[in-house]
Design a protein around this nucleic acid. Structure first.
Length: 492
RNA sequence: CGGGGUAUGGCGCAGCCCGGCUAGCGCACCUGCUUUGGGAGCAGGGGGUCGCAGGUUCGAAUCCUGCUACCCCGACCA
């Protein structure tokens, strides 16, 4: 399984691709740029969904579902929005097939042309705001706090498993508010939810920030984001939350009567994270032995592997394994007891290690005699014999420790790969040789940002929310005055 | 859209340059015996329209023409 597995240093992108495929997370499908998410990969996504969904509910949101297809005309109602997405839309033009008259298979029936073409949603703002118009009349109808779990399609030129596929899964929150302030609070609140999720579930540190105009969502007034740093020194946008102002309310004529009996446009937000988080998770923790999963998101937190020779040993060891499994499950721990008789222990060790199970318990005849188990940690690849007594506590504590250790390792990596840079020469050198986040002064202009991108491929990932205006300086590129440091990096 | 690569049992590949007899190897699979604390060993066995369509030839996985699909690198993007 991990045989012939290329190391990160040898070829990082091959390491990533091989990992996704060999760890059974996903595979290429028959359709270009689309992937099959396999059960093990989907199980991780379900863990993410469950945790996020709970947080959404706790913050007052409810789930709903809006259509996959969007009338083409809806798109043109918000100018910036069309412009942003037009180049990557899949379009439905017909609704019927028929047998080819020359007997060459099946063809699109030209008589079945749609009056108005339909766009396969790349995001749902338009269809949702067209709907919200009907739902909102009074301030009493607000706020609307809705999330949907859905698939979307963006016809990307170049795709990568999980990181950028033509179709992907995500959640998109769409909220409507009576006041600007309330919408702004909402956008930031959800950014906080994402940050918290990244930290406490994914064990992934992120920088909270605001996008520059260049990187802003098409149709937003302000785009907030969380940016994470991957092990190859490139940044990954892990989640976004947009303050949409009244742009969509105006485009779709969504008005309400305020308490003062004045007709006003509704204020909006939208926010989302996608299966891209799978890529982020993989590239934050995994190593040259395969996937490494944080306990909070691992489909199996513990795998039990029995070791035996004779049938009586098998029965005894498996009975013990079942007992341990049952007790751990009572504590809410997700356990896989790999009692397959068709594979040998060594094979199972390698397989589950590659699949990133945080903790492995091996039990053999010797353990039964000594009242011990062999415990192996995935994060440190260390093994130890541990007394069977108190095993439950040991496991609970270790899972906790692994979760923390992963976060700490990730944050150490990020610290080591975050560099303050004060001149252009240094900027280029650090970007070239070290990568990572670069904190540098910027004059605030799109022109400078564009030029830096042209010359180095680095972009401004965000203006950090804790932007320090006390440290004035000079733009690293133009030398013009700057109010504070922003985050540069090459990005996925 | 530009550049590169690939297409041969389920998977990974060799064979192609220089055409030839039954298309081969590893893994996986099936049967049996021995094994089992880091990817088991031996023996036997099953499985392939060589991406598609033409062409050259006595004969094509191999040469020629055209097509298609996918992957990688770039431009575009979450």
């Amino acid at each position: 399984m991990a045989k012939n597995f290329v190391s990160r240093e040898e070829n990082y992108s091959q390491w990533y691709n091989d990992l996704v495929i060999k760890a059974d997370l996903a595979e290429y499908s028959a359709v270009r740029g689309s992937m099959v998410i396999k059960p093990y990969g989907y199980a991780i996504w379900e863990m993410m969904q469950a945790a996020l969904d709970k947080k959404f509910k706790e913050t007052g949101h409810v789930n709903a579902y809006f259509p996959l297809f969007i009338p083409k005309s809806f798109f043109s109602k918000e100018a910036k929005h069309v412009e942003g997405f037009a180049k990557e839309c899949a379009v439905v033009t017909h609704y019927r097939l028929k047998n080819d008259e020359n007997g060459k298979g099946i063809v699109v029936d030209p008589d079945a042309k749609l009056e108005e073409e339909l766009i396969v949603r790349p995001t749902s703002e338009t269809i949702i705001w067209d709907t919200y118009r009907k739902w909102v009349q009074s301030w009493r109808d607000l706020p609307i706090l809705i999330n949907q779990w859905a698939n979307v399609v963006r016809w990307e030129m170049r795709t990568r498993l999980f990181l950028r596929t033509a179709e992907f899964l995500w959640q998109e929150g769409h909220t409507a508010h009576a006041t600007k302030q309330e919408a702004e609070v909402e956008a930031k609140k959800m950014l906080g939810v994402y940050t918290d999720f990244a930290k406490n579930f994914m064990a992934m540190p992120v920088i909270q920030g605001v996008k520059t105009e260049n990187e802003r969502f098409a149709g937003a007034i302000e785009t907030y984001c969380i940016e994470a740093l991957m092990q190859d020194g490139k940044a990954l946008q892990a989640g976004t939350s947009h303050f949409l102002g009244q742009n969509f309310a105006k485009a779709f004529d969504v008005k309400f009567l305020s308490k003062e009996n004045k007709l006003e446009y509704v204020w909006a937000t939208s926010w989302g994270v996608s299966t891209r988080l799978m890529g982020a998770l993989i590239m934050t923790h995994s190593d040259d032995s395969g996937l490494v999963l944080p306990p909070k998101l691992a489909p199996f937190q513990v795998v039990i592997i029995p070791i035996y020779r004779k049938e009586e040993e098998r029965l005894a060891v498996i009975a013990k394994g079942n007992q341990i499994k049952e007790e751990l499950e009572k504590l809410g721990i997700r356990v896989k007891h790999d009692d397959r008789d068709t594979q040998k222990p060594g094979y199972k060790f390698a397989e589950w290690e590659f699949k990133g199970v945080p903790l492995r318990i091996a039990i053999g005849p010797r353990d039964l005699k000594n009242n011990t188990v062999e415990l192996a940690r995935r994060d440190t690849l260390s093994k130890s014999f541990t007394p069977m007594d108190g095993l439950n506590d040991t496991v609970v504590n270790l899972l906790d420790e692994i979760q923390n250790n992963l976060y700490n390792k990730a944050i150490d990596f990020r610290s080591e790969h975050t560099t303050e840079v004060n001149n252009w020469q240094e900027f280029k050198e650090v970007l070239e040789n070290k990568g990572g986040f670069i904190l540098a002064h910027w004059d605030g202009s799109s022109e400078t940002e564009d030029k830096i991108k042209e010359e180095t491929k680095a972009t401004i990932r965000s203006i950090p929310l804790d932007y320090d205006e006390s440290e004035e300086g000079k733009c690293v590129y133009s030398g013009k005055p700057s109010k504070g440091r922003v985050v540069f990096a090459k990005a996925y």
